Computed example of a mutant assay.
Amino acid sequence: MELTSGRISWHGINLFKKINVYWLISCASPLILFFVWYVACRLQLFPDQILVPPENVWLSFINLIQSGELYLHLKDSLFRLFAGFSIGATAAIAFGIVYATNRHVKDYFSLIFNVLYQIPIFVLIPIFILIFGIGETFKILLIIKACFFPVALAMIEAVEGVPKQYMELSQVYQLKLKNRVKYIILPSVMPPLISSLRIALGRAWLILVAVELLAAGTGIGQMMELGRQMLRLDIVMVGVFITGLIGFVLDKSLRQVEQRFIQYKQQ
């Protein structure tokens, strides 16, 4: 028992060391970048209007929180993101299942699906502005387009990769489409589906911020654009850091969900 206990303890110590090393390596690069930024500002290598000192950015961040302006912009951006992502991802999952399991649907929509997939998001911006204006509909539609095709493509490939014996078994038992999706298709495609959702969500966030820079009344992107127009690069830097932090949190959260599904499937 003592030997076993010692082995467990030693294994725990090694694991703890690995976690600490990983954590130190992960923190090193942003700390080094911050240090270089701080030193460059102190040495006045660039004017303050171009390279804003870190303390000025921090003060602007606090002021934006206290005034409620950051909350307003962030609330609107996240609403657009999750509204467009929810609609686009749900539609993509349903379309991918039907497309992969129904030959007639595949024949009808194959050409138009591939043509629309090849159209860049930013090409649609002037068309959507003319039709919908610069309101919420325009931005949510762009997010739907950004999310729909990556998730739909991943879903189609995943469903087509479901072992044939599973599908044949469902036909033998005459399972309805609802039960076939619930008990066979979704459990089989969940890891690649979560991965595609993670990629689509990150892509949608980047596109949303870029669109808000061009045409929006509120949002993180618009906050940065207003800061640029007023030559307030401290506000622009706050927007840059907020954008990166939110993108990191979204990606990390879905990556954790993806890892859990992979472990569950292996078990």
Rank of each mutant, 00 (worst) to 15 (best):
L214A: 05
R80L: 15
V159E: 04
P192M: 04
P120L: 03
L186R: 12
I184D: 10
F79A: 11
I140E: 13
L142I: 07
D107L: 09
R198W: 03
S77I: 11
V151L: 09
A200M: 03
L153V: 07
I185V: 12
S188A: 15
S86Y: 04
F148G: 02
F82V: 05
I140V: 14
A89Q: 07
G135N: 00
T137G: 06
K164L: 13
A152L: 08
F95K: 02
S86R: 05
L153E: 07
F113D: 06
C147I: 01
Y173F: 15
V172P: 12
Y99S: 11
I185Q: 05
V211W: 06
I87C: 12
Y166K: 12
I144C: 14
Y117K: 03
V151F: 11
I156D: 09
A204N: 01
V189E: 02
A200W: 09
F82Y: 10
L141N: 01
P187N: 05
F95R: 02
I93C: 02
N114Q: 07
V189P: 00
A152Q: 14
V162L: 02
V105D: 11
E160I: 12
K176N: 15
L201S: 05
C147L: 00
Y99H: 14
I140T: 09
I185L: 06
G88C: 01
F109Y: 15
R80C: 14
F122M: 02
V105K: 15
T90I: 14
W205E: 10
T90W: 09
A215D: 02
K106N: 13
I144L: 13
F82E: 04
S195C: 06
A200T: 12
A215P: 09
Y166N: 13
V98A: 13
L214M: 11
R198T: 05
G133D: 02
I119G: 01
G135V: 00
E168A: 14
P191N: 03
P120V: 03
P191R: 01
A92E: 08
A83V: 13
S170R: 08
L142E: 06
Y117E: 04
Y173Q: 04
P191V: 04
A92C: 10
M155P: 09
F132D: 13
K145W: 11
V172L: 15
I97K: 06
L130Y: 03
C147F: 00
S195T: 11
L81T: 08
V123R: 03
Y166V: 11
G202R: 06
F138L: 01
K106M: 09
A146F: 06
P192D: 10
A152E: 10
F82S: 06
L197T: 03
Q174S: 13
I156M: 14
S110A: 07
A89I: 11
V172T: 13
R103V: 10
A91T: 12
L78P: 03
W205I: 12
L213H: 14
F148I: 01
S196C: 04
N179F: 11
K178N: 10
A92R: 05
F95Q: 04
F138M: 10
V209I: 14
Y99A: 14
L201N: 01
V211S: 07
A200K: 08
F128K: 12
I93M: 07
F128V: 03
I199G: 06
V162S: 06
I194C: 11
F113M: 08
A91S: 15
I207V: 15
I97R: 08
A94E: 06
L214Q: 03
A215S: 00
L206W: 00
